[in-house]
Write a protein that binds this DNA or RNA. Sequence first.
RNA 1: GCACCGAUGGCGAAGUGGUUAACGCGCUGGUCUGCAAAACCAGUACUCAUGGGUUCAAAUCCCAUUCGGUGCUCCA
Length: 497
Amino acid sequence: MPLELFNTLSGKIEVLAPEGGPALRMYACGPTVYDYGHIGNFRTFLHLDVLRRFLKQLGYPVNHVMNITDVDDKIIRNALAANLSIGEYTAKFEKAFFEDLDSLEIERPEHLPRATAHIPEMVALIEQLAEKGFAYQAEDGSWYFRIAKDPDYGKLAKKDFDGIEDGARVDVDEYDKDHARDFALWKAVKAGADGTEEHHWATALGPGRPGWHIECSAMATGLLGEAIDLHAGGEDLMFPHHENEIAQSESASGKTFVRHWMHVRFLLVEGRKMSKSEGNFYTLRDLLLKGYRASAIRYLLISVPYRHQLNFTFDGLKQATNAIERLRTFYQRLLKGSWPEGTNAELAEQIGGAGAKYTAELSNDLNTANACAAIFIMVTAVNSAVEAGTLYREQAEAALGVLALFDGVFAVLEDKDAELTRTALAWAEREGRLNEADPSTVATLALPDEAIAGLIEERAKAKKQRNFARADAIRNDLLSKGILLKDGAAGTEWTRK
RNA sequence: GCACCGAUGGCGAAGUGGUUAACGCGCUGGUCUGCAAAACCAGUACUCAUGGGUUCAAAUCCCAUUCGGUGCUCCA
């Protein structure tokens, strides 16, 4: 079954398939490592993770490039203020970014190029553009892209730049910025107020640093070639960033740069745009310290399809936690139970249908919401069969197979949450930010597993002696510390609430 | 201001012309249990922001209004 994905460029849903090789070549705009990543950033990266995991499930190898922007105005400014080199400054946040990817079970792209490691390619690309008349140097030494020379400019953002077209017929001076919309390819070095020069590279273009857009064009073509299958990013990047990438890359190569463009929509927080001034700005680490689980964050951000705006709320996070609990309980039940031989034809059909629906829904423009629905329908059907005593080994295995398919993309069934939260707490301690942590989360995690096991054993003895008062006291005490007990046929199990 | 996107139950959300409007969470009652938890069963929007219109038929198409978001400037 082919994957059909909305293409921003054509405005239509189209089949996404690799061309000119077995692997799908995709490029995604990565983070600018000047601070910790926020949940809005991760919504985009999570949906790209869904895409790449699903592509692999469909049998397409993926060659995925995600750039690390490790030089820009903010980085230069912040590094200067912290009295660090830009490399020293960005190393910390780059490391944090990778840790966050791991926490959210986001697979590493095949290539993670740093902008600062590809300056020569950027310079070469600008020189190529200059040769063809698309780039020019302004009086201050900066290089700009001449939009007036590119009749296709605006095709992605669906913008009509009439005024710019007119400008093309006007004679322009080579050394002034021709038009207000012309964007920087290379920014000439500037001296600060105190006379010190900011970070720069000495190149054939003159001393300076690359513009943001050229970075992606150079690294995408350098690693994937001049014509790639898919390019993705947040919706805000559509214009001007992606439009400019197209302009640069296609003007230089004369080829179609990208066949398929994917844009992930923004999330709102409590119904409002997330922003520092609104006070609703959250990094992944903020949420982990508040006691929310990494798995719930992943699930919540993924479960709403990428082309819809998602309203992120703390209530929603709690709901996601509970939904995952249901799935995990079900998963463990299938895994640990022993099921008799036999066949339940109706159930077998339901399970097969769920698997097919799951794949069909993701194939339909990555409809993650409906893919989840298919799984939950199966969960209910199988649980019903368990209650009725009509679940057999064959169907249990089939259901586990469908779950494995689901988890290959959603990746929430294995419970690593307590460990991840512990890691976040350790980080907060090192950073002197432990005061931001939720006290009850700290208390729950402070209780070692062995202590819990001991109390459960004591409770089991009490129960055997029909001393229910003592047994219930232990259970309530653990509950108040966030530990939930479940008595089952095979003994007592526990989970952190 | 201009352009584009969206508004579905208590909450999140699927659904873009035609059965009883998915699914998850929550809530209510029941089954099970020493009691719980889990699980199951039943119930939980006669209705899809508001007002018009098109159609045999609209949550789905058109127009207007209100609200939210995005782009036009750094932004996932």
